[in-house]
């Protein structure tokens, strides 16, 4: 997307759309589908083992600050590893009726503000050569951002 070399890109908007749509298909098939499938299966495992109800009870007071049920903590924990997986968990919890649209609206900015931090350590901080000493600080800033986002979203929903 960023390397818009003039000769390679067609100037006709229909062709440009098709290039983007092709990228979208790749993302949907290679990123979304495996991650969403995994998230649905993990949610089902947690549900069958009974861990979901347990997690829900334990984290209810903490997540209550953000206007969310305790189970929502699973969304935040998974998103830290991968935003696609976190989104998948959120969707599967909505399908189960644990979360609703209001909860989804509160969660969505947090999903990306603290999303995929583990991958981005390599892809962003590693590539940019940011001194490792400050990595925990940057992580903390992201988590603070996510918390602020959830509190602010409460006023919009």
């Amino acid at each position: 997307m960023s390397n818009n070399a003039k000769p390679a890109t067609p100037s006709n908007p229909f062709d440009i759309f098709v290039i983007g749509a092709r990228k979208g298909f790749q993302i949907a098939i290679n990123n979304l589908m495996p991650n969403v499938l995994m998230a649905y299966v993990i949610a089902e495992i947690l549900n069958l083992v009974g861990a979901m109800q347990f997690i829900g009870k334990i984290f209810a007071p903490m997540m209550g600050i953000f206007g969310l049920p305790g189970e929502a903590v699973t969304v935040l924990l998974t998103t830290w590893l991968s935003s696609s997986a976190g989104t998948g968990v959120a969707v599967s919890l909505i399908a189960k009726g644990v979360l609703n649209g209001t909860h989804a609206s509160i969660l969505i900015p947090a999903l990306f503000l603290m999303g995929a931090q583990l991958q981005y350590m390599g892809r962003l901080l590693g590539v940019a050569d940011t001194p490792k000493k400050y990595w925990p600080l940057l992580m903390l800033a992201s988590i603070i951002n996510a918390c602020i986002a959830m509190i602010v979203m409460r006023f919009f929903v």
Partner: peptide, 14 residues
């Protein structure tokens, strides 16, 4: 989800 992702990225490209 595939159709809306394709649509979004198609327009983003434009």
């Amino acid at each position: 989800l595939a159709p809306s992702v394709m649509l979004a990225l198609g327009f983003l490209e434009i």
